[in-house]
């Protein structure tokens, strides 16, 4: 099972900060997601794509987790060396594609 089977997600940014959100489909999924999707696990996965030091926020009332990564986007949107601009809008798929069966 992927994270994306029990949650929806979205990437955003402000300046050089990457900002990722995951929202679980129900309470049981949220509990599972909260246990699985630790800051360390996110850091490990995201670190393959960018410099990643992750702060995690847990919002039980909204069944949601947030991952905030300062310095992930050096120089901001315009200064990126990726092909085209706004590559970070796809970054949430790094988390959504993580396999939860282990």
């Amino acid at each position: 099972m992927r994270v994306g089977d029990i949650a929806v997600g979205r990437s955003g940014d402000k300046g050089d900060i990457l900002d990722l959100s995951l929202v679980a489909v129900d309470e049981k999924s949220f509990e599972r997601l909260e246990r699985f999707m630790t800051a360390e696990r996110a850091e490990q996965a995201l670190g393959l794509a960018m410099p990643a030091r992750v702060t995690r926020y847990v919002v039980p009332g909204l069944l949601a987790l947030k991952f905030v990564i300062p310095g992930a986007l050096p120089g901001g949107v315009h200064a990126s060396l990726h092909a085209g601009m706004h590559w970070q809008k796809s970054a949430i798929h790094i988390l959504l594609d993580l396999d939860m069966d282990e």
Partner: peptide, 12 residues
């Protein structure tokens, strides 16, 4: 919910 949390960093 995904939009409420979009780019807000610390939700509190």
């Amino acid at each position: 919910t995904v939009q409420l949390l979009y780019e807000v960093h610390d939700p509190s």
